[in-house]
Design a protein around this nucleic acid. Structure first.
Length: 961
DNA sequence: ACCGCCGGGTGCC
DNA sequence: ACCGCCGGGTGCC
């Protein structure tokens, strides 16, 4: 069926150095030349077919490149050719030169190609009848405006483009772009009519949907992974292991008899095409891509064997210090080393895992249970020390030594062969078994997440060498880096190093992982080049959103995965991008097939066996009404009437905005009344006439305190965000310091308060003094009194503790001072609790969260959480009960807080209790919340004015005006 | 290359 | 014969 010529010379079909073998001009490889040529040309998107032409390829006998019937070929200009500067080279998909275009035709084509008037593509329809020349169908593509120039230019040199026939039927047009094989494929499916723009967009949006089929089942993670994987994560792990280990042919390849055949390009080869080890894990956020990847690193070192890792029950393990370098050095030696490796293999103890808790050593000689326990307890005892979780012989054979030179590596791999199982070695002998580390590249912002997750998911007694390659002090030593298990770096560091003796580019990585892989999109960017230039055996892309905009974005991903021939842009454009953008169904289907072969994607709404992938436990939200006591009610009504009068006056005068701070303070007082009387400012909130500057300052501070009232979500009227670095003006309005400072500096001497237009000066801004902050924190416990809300909370907590003492609770308030007040009864009742608020350092927060999340028996059962500190990112799944002490202006803030514990990893039912004081400003706030929720869906961007007016409406409603 | 092309040998039927 | 024809040598750009 196909004719093959020259059955030799095919050991490497990837990069033939074509220039240097004939004449000295450049050391560029052909594929580089093709890539370079393609990258200079505009995208193929807007190309129209100009026509086609039968040409002749000559000089076949001088080259090793092979083509088959129907196969696509590349045409590359060779201006440096010493025999003919018009030369046009013909190459097959893998960049091997096939021949040249006949001189006269080449001259005509050269003019067109050099002036970028058209792109020429070739398909060999008839195969070769002899070993000297063959016909080739050339099709010309380009911008409509260049069509006539091309037709003329060609015909002036005696070549007439046949444009009619290719337009006649879509199918025949396809045949020129995709070869006969693809045409047969597409016509079989009856996909001959073009897609509408709508259909195309739809198909494209759904390109990554439903890619959750994995026939590989589930796979258990290695013992060194401390966190049990969820079912869908086991599926992903299994899929990833299979993609790394199995020699599955890349998409569009089939084995036909003795040959490997590409159904898209009709290319065929005697040798197996390069297997794509890796792919795209495109699961939605929150499904655990990071955990799955960590599990992959630990589970699949080589051929499904776990990464050999050290177990360190004690700080100093003799094994690592002594034995490992020893083994490595033995392996580096010649035949003596082989024997050593062999004997190591049989003599060293096997490590066996009895259950998830106990890792013990099983030696051939002694396997009694008692002995095992003994060895476990005394791990530092000689050869019986439980040091490696995996087959030591295997690990030894692989020799993790970083000092290996390239030749030594090969040697090690080959010499190790006898110790490996038969089938694993047969699969492909070319695989370099000496690579150990995985390189993870991610945006700066997620580095800490990776470090946390390694910490969290790798068993605590497993010693995994994770190195953060970041910062000016980073260790650039190649040997050091290659001896790690994992190296983490950022895209920026990688691209900064690139071209600058980058050690990362000098290492043969076992695996390279691009986290948030979609950020690498522009192929011309330095980052992209740096990423493409890495040497690795396996490549992975993690991305929640693999395509942002267009098909173009996919090229980078495929190029990174080295999915030949699409890593060369020319082939990508020709086979996928242009057909797809022009609405070719077959092209789209090819794209879908391609993506499907290398991608696993599940969404939060995906289902497995009829059940949602991530089924969060049920969440119930209830409101508990709180009745104020007689005294509280009297105080509340007093404050409410007073406030209502004041605000009513402002509304009538139209001066609400001018007195905004005062209005907020009134509302705040009412909200505070609902929680606890001690939240209220002790002294009068009315500024009145201050006698002395010191007194004024004192009152302003008091006012500031009441407005801020510790962590409520007041807005700065300049930026309309929550107030940051609050200061109060002499006219008693609160802003962010940077915001108001900017107002003052731009208006200079005439600066006025944005709210009331009183003159303001920079040196009159008052901030909350540090000493006061400290005082606030240690409220006097002697004077402590309770409140209805406190009683309501304590009742719930005590009841819960009786029912199930293992239950943990979040107690959330906007008022950090309220949290402080709550500390007293909690202590009195013997609750163990922690506290998390915005004033704490990052380090302290992590510590507190860790403490709370831990399942230690005497650990804290309650976390006092300030509403604003409980924003995004926190993981508080240890808690299953949430008490919201007071309603927030913004219901989304509450939801966010609740989601800290109602999220992935929560095993219990989540019960949320919102306390609301009956007949109070709190109830009105909830009404407003509900109305707002409805509005959120309707209105989007609202202006600042809108925001302020709606606030006024809110205020009126709150005061029942 | 089972071609085309070149250039030398050759020459009625 | 300043042709035609034959057959050997030869061959990408």
């Amino acid at each position: 069926m196909f004719s093959r010529r020259w059955g030799f010379g095919w050991d490497s079909y990837s990069e033939v150095d074509l220039f240097t073998d004939r004449y000295d001009s450049s050391a560029e490889t052909l594929s580089q030349a093709i890539r370079a040529a393609a990258s200079e040309e505009p995208d193929a998107d807007g190309s129209v077919p100009f026509g086609h032409l039968q040409g002749t390829v000559v000089g076949l006998r001088f080259y090793t490149g092979v083509v088959n019937q129907g196969e696509m070929v590349g045409l590359v200009r060779q201006p440096q050719n010493p025999y003919d500067r018009n030369a046009v080279m013909v190459s097959n998909i893998y960049g091997n030169q096939v021949g040249h275009i006949k001189r006269e035709l080449a001259a005509a084509m050269a003019h067109v190609m050099d002036n970028n008037l058209a792109k020429v593509e070739g398909v060999v329809h008839s195969g070769t009848k002899n070993s000297f020349t063959m016909p080739v169908m050339l099709s010309f593509w380009g911008q409509e405006e260049n069509k006539n120039a091309v037709m003329e230019s060609m015909s002036r040199r005696g070549f007439k483009l046949n444009s009619g026939a290719s337009k006649a039927t879509g199918a025949s047009q396809n045949s020129y772009t995709q070869g006969q094989g693809a045409r047969a494929y597409s016509s079989k499916k009856g996909l001959t009519t073009a897609l509408s723009a709508e259909e195309l967009k739809n198909a494209f949006d759904n390109l990554f949907d439903g890619l959750m089929e994995s026939k590989d089942g589930e796979k258990q993670a290695a013992e060194s992974v401390g966190t049990p994987l969820m079912p869908h994560q086991k599926v992903a792990l299994s899929w990833m292991c299979a993609r790394e280990n199995k020699s599955t042919l890349p998409p569009f390849w089939e084995k036909r008899g003795e040959l490997y055949y590409n159904t898209l390009t009709c290319f065929s080869a005697k040798e197996i095409p390069e297997i794509i080890r890796g792919g795209i894990l495109a699961d939605d956020m929150g499904l655990g891509k990071t955990l799955t990847t960590i599990a992959l690193i630990l589970t699949n070192f080589h051929k499904g064997k776990p990464l050999p890792v050290e177990i360190c029950k004690e700080r100093s393990s003799p094994f690592k210090a002594k034995t490992q370098p020893d083994m490595a050095s033995k392996l580096e030696g010649s035949s003596a080393g082989d024997e050593a490796a062999g004997s190591l293999c049989s003599d060293l103890p096997q490590v066996e895992v009895i259950d998830s808790e106990e890792v013990v050593v099983k030696s051939e000689k002694s396997t009694s249970k008692g002995k095992r326990k003994a060895t476990k307890r005394q791990p530092s005892k000689g050869a019986e020390a439980p040091v490696l979780l995996e087959d030591l012989g295997f690990a030894a054979a692989l020799g993790g030594s970083a000092a290996d030179s390239a030749t030594k590596k090969k040697k090690t791999g080959k010499k190790a062969a006898p110790t490996l199982s038969e089938e694993s070695f047969i699969a492909d002998s070319a695989e370099d078994l000496s690579a150990r580390p995985t390189l993870i590249i991610c945006p700066l912002s997620v580095i800490s997440n990776w470090l946390d997750q390694f910490e969290q998911h790798v068993r605590a007694d497993v010693k995994l060498n994770v190195y953060l390659y970041y910062g000016p002090e980073r260790n650039r030593n190649k040997n050091f880096l290659s001896s790690q298990d994992v190296v983490i770096t950022t895209y920026n560091v990688l691209s900064a190093d690139f071209g600058n003796k980058s050690p990362l580019h000098a290492i043969n990585w076992l695996r390279v992982v691009l986290d948030e892989g979609h950020v690498v999109r522009n192929p011309n960017a330095q980052i992209s080049k740096a990423v493409l230039d890495l040497t690795a055996q396996r490549r992975w892309i993690l991305s929640g959103t693999p395509i942002q905009n267009s098909v173009k974005d996919l090229w980078m991903l495929l190029a990174f995965l080295r999915l030949k021939p699409f890593d060369a842009k020319e082939w990508w454009n020709r086979v996928i991008q242009r057909p797809v953008t022009q609405g070719d169904r077959a092209g789209l289907q090819n794209l879908q097939t391609l993506v499907k072969c290398i991608t696993l994607r599940r969404t939060k709404s995906s289902e497995k066996d009829g059940r949602p992938l991530v089924s969060l436990p049920e969440k119930t939200v209830s409101v508990e009404q709180v009745e104020l006591s007689q005294t509280e009610r009297e105080e509340y009504e007093l404050a409410r009437n007073e406030g209502r009068n004041t605000i009513g006056r402002y509304v009538a005068e139209g001066t609400v905005l001018r007195n905004y701070a005062d209005v907020l303070a009134i509302l705040m007082r009412l909200r505070q009344h609902c929680c606890h009387p001690d939240l209220l400012a002790k002294t009068s909130s009315d500024l009145g006439a201050a006698a002395t500057p010191a007194e004024l300052r004192e009152r302003l501070i008091e006012k500031l305190r009441s407005v801020l009232a510790s962590g409520s979500d007041e807005e700065c009227s300049v930026c309309l965000e929550s107030v940051r670095l609050p200061v109060i003006t002499h006219c008693a309005h609160v802003y962010c310091r940077p915001c108001i400072a900017q107002v003052i500096s731009s208006e200079q001497e005439n600066a006025r308060c944005p709210l009331c237009r009183t003159e303001i000066k920079a040196n009159e801004l008052v901030e909350f003094p540090q000493e006061k902050m400290e005082e606030e924190k240690c409220a006097n416990p002697d004077k402590w009194r309770t409140s209805s809300k406190v009683q309501a909370l304590m009742g719930n907590l005590l009841r819960l503790r009786c029912e199930d003492s293992s239950i943990k609770c979040l107690v959330i308030s906007q008022f950090t001072r309220f949290l402080t007040i709550l500390e007293t009864p909690l202590r009195e009742q013997g609750f163990s609790f922690v506290r998390l608020d915005g004033s704490m350092s990052q380090k302290k927060r992590t510590q507190v969260i860790q403490e709370f999340q831990s399942s230690a028996a005497d650990g804290p059962s309650i976390m006092l959480l300030s509403l604003k500190a409980g924003g995004v990112g926190l993981n508080l799944t240890a808690a299953s009960h949430v008490f919201l002490m007071d309603p927030a202006w913004n219901p989304a803030t509450e939801e966010q807080c609740i989601d800290r514990c109602h999220r992935l990893g929560q095993t219990r039912r989540v019960v949320v209790t919102k306390f609301l004081v009956k007949d109070s400003v709190e109830e009105t706030m909830v009404k407003i919340q509900k109305q707002k929720q409805e509005l959120v869906d309707k209105a989007f961007g609202s202006t600042n004015t809108d925001k302020k007016t709606s606030r006024i409406d809110d205020i009126k409603a709150l005061m029942e005006l």
